[in-house]
Design a protein around this nucleic acid. Structure first.
Length: 612
DNA sequence: GCCGTTTTCGGCCCGACTGTTTTCAGTCG
């Protein structure tokens, strides 16, 4: 299939052969990131010293592309690839060639000089390019498909330890690493936020039992509230690090100790969850919090900025021009010393927060206490829906909403099945439900009740309820629950069509992704965001821990496009209503302020928005 | 190979830990 892309804009003197491209092949961001990482690995093997900065550059480009909310394919076709930080003219040209020809001459030359068996090893913990090369080379391994199995066998047969630079211990480590890799501990495997939080809570409680522990903090991506967490990072202040570390590595639920030094240690728990600990004195906790919270990209950027001021940053503190180390017992003071306001952990992702801090233009992020209601609640009210019901009664969920200090609650069960009922039957079901809601309004004067339903957007783009039925509601949450594999343009059209109904105000779990299970469907998000803004509708930030949908990177761009959001729990039981905090974290990570979130509005403002 | 709040040339984050080593290489975050 040959697609000539029409959207490229250029002036006459900018035309060159590479500007007019025809995309023949398709590659996902993950595939491209892997390819660039392989190139970095190949350069490392070839001559790490000589190619030091190319290696850095390729790794950075790979990281950026892997975490980009936009597909490289799309950016390329709109000639916007240079919007990705770390992708410059050279890598851009290589990617153009990749999409045009399916391969890149320059990459083939670099990668072709090495055995392809090296690269699968790069996803196995403890393997880097050098170690992978040395083993693959020593045994002449060629096949990427079975290289891991072969190396495992060689290690078991004691054939690795005689190699130069290897020994008994490193051979045993290889066996452990491959066994763990086989049951899912890859460099890219990640756990969902609540699980990581539970693990951290248990360990923190255990660590606090040691008398030498002064304070304990969960850090890393857990503190930044990323939707998925790789390792659980914890920082401790103590005057006696060795005592604390000893206590830590004796944690009853540990499987094994990965490492234990003077100030850090790492253990693996059952289920292959890794926990890293760092211990410093209380007068250094400010720099330790900063360092261990990350992200890596934020820290690198901050350190580059500090170098220009003549400082060198580390977890120990700030090294001044005279070589002396200045210590910080407070994280705010650490940032202040650099001439910056404190930056909330959720936005430390190098998405412009350091630049914004320099100009004193950081957003005032929305907080959980700003939330005044929840619209996406499934009660046990029987609607004869084709989807799932909630477990608890409307009244139980109202009581919970009151205990959360909400001003309003919205019920949004799935629409009645259109397969089992004709239009009139559905209408009667909904009239009956309306009566129930009216009764509840009368008996619950201290909270407002909003009458919604979650209505399917059918493959035709029509809603699964007639206009007459929709008229019975205050507003509708609309969402996709079928035909996820629909191609992009058709899906975009379907979504916009569903949203075009005046009652359709909220687009629920917009991408349809399930973390670690499915990617969600493809759609033209720029187009959808533009429509949402123009028609004064809202995107849902679904707080369900394996959804967290809209994703934070898309929240970021939707907000920049001027969209509004609602944060909903999608609760199917009263306990789920406590998940609101996860949705708020996503909103914060997308730089949302209170004004961006509809369910921070007063009931009066809300009513105006519903009608507007 | 990328990039600009000293720079379009000359820089490029910082440290901990392990294993196999007599001073360092590799991996990790």
């Amino acid at each position: 299939m040959l697609i000539i892309l029409p959207e490229i804009k250029f002036t006459v003197n900018e035309i060159c052969a590479c500007d007019i491209i025809s995309i023949m092949k398709s590659f996902s961001n993950l595939e491209i990131a892997r390819l660039l990482n392989n190139v970095a690995g190949a350069y490392t093997i070839k001559n790490e010293g000589k190619y030091r900065f190319q290696i850095l550059a390729y790794k950075k480009a790979a990281d950026t592309i892997e975490s980009s909310s936009k597909e490289v394919k799309d950016l390329l076709s709109q000639d916007q690839l240079d919007r990705l930080p770390g992708v410059g003219p050279s890598i851009r040209a290589h990617l153009l060639e990749l999409f045009e020809k399916g391969k890149v001459k320059h990459f083939d030359e670099i990668l072709g000089a090495l055995s392809p068996a090296i690269f699968p090893l790069l996803d196995v913990p403890s393997f880097g390019p050098k170690k992978a090369f040395r083993i693959v080379d020593a045994f002449g391994l060629k096949d990427p498909k079975d290289v891991i199995d072969k190396i495992y066998k060689l290690a078991k047969e004691n054939k690795i330890s005689p190699l130069d630079g290897f020994g008994e211990k490193s051979q045993a480590d290889i066996i452990t690493a491959i066994e763990e890799y086989r049951v899912g501990k890859t460099k890219s495997a990640r756990m969902v936020l609540p699980l990581a939080q539970d693990i951290a809570d248990d360990i923190l409680e255990y660590l606090k039992k040691e008398k030498e522990t002064i304070e304990a903090y969960p850090l890393g991506s857990l503190r930044r509230k990323k939707p998925t967490i790789g390792d659980v990072d914890i920082a401790i202040t103590s005057k006696n690090p060795s005592k604390v570390l000893e206590h830590f590595v004796n944690y009853p639920h540990k499987d094994r100790i990965i490492e234990k030094g003077e100030i850090t240690a790492s253990i693996v728990l059952s289920g292959n969850k890794q926990v890293d600990l760092m211990v410093l004195s209380p007068e250094q906790i400010g720099s330790l919090l900063q360092h261990f919270t990350g992200s890596k990209e934020h820290n690198v950027k901050l350190r580059e900025y500090a170098i220009k001021k003549g400082y060198s940053l580390s977890e120990k503190g700030i090294k001044l021009k005279n070589g002396k180390l200045k210590k910080f017992s407070d994280e705010k003071e650490f940032y202040k010393f650099l001439g910056l306001p404190w930056i909330q952990p959720e936005i430390r992702e190098n998405r412009g927060e350091i630049e914004a801090a320099l100009k004193d233009k950081l957003p005032k992020l929305v907080e959980i206490d700003d939330i005044k209601g929840d619209f996406h609640i499934h009660s046990d009210y029987p609607l004869d829906s084709s989807h799932d019901y909630g477990k608890d009664s409307m009244q139980t969920m109202i009581d919970k909403a009151i205990s959360l200090n909400y001003d309003y609650i919205g019920f949004s069960e799935h629409n009645p099945s259109i397969g089992n009922h004709d239009e009139n039957e559905i209408y009667q079901i909904l009239v009956k439900r309306n009566n129930k809601i009216e009764q509840l309004k009368k008996s619950n004067k201290n909270i407002r009740i909003v009458n919604l339903l979650e209505v399917d957007i059918l493959t035709s783009g029509k809603l699964a309820l007639s206009d007459k039925c929709l008229e019975l509601l205050d507003m509708a949450i609309v969402s996709i629950h079928s035909s996820f594999k629909t191609e992009r343009e058709k899906m975009t059209k379907r979504i916009l069509s569903g949203l075009s109904h005046p009652k359709a105000k909220i687009f629920a779990h917009p991408t349809g992704r399930l973390i670690n299970q499915r990617n969600g469907y493809d759609a033209d998000w720029d187009k959808i965001f533009k429509y949402i803004k123009e028609k004064n509708k809202a995107l849902e930030i679904n707080a369900w821990p394996t959804r967290l949908d809209l994703r934070d990177d898309l929240v970021f761009s939707a907000r920049e496009s001027g969209c509004k959001f609602v944060i909903d729990t999608d609760s199917h039981a009263v306990t789920h209503m406590d998940n609101m905090k996860y949705g708020v974290s996503v909103a914060k990570r997308g730089w949302c302020e209170k004004k961006d979130i509809i369910n921070t509005f007063s009931y009066t403002e809300l009513t105006k928005w519903i009608q507007g």
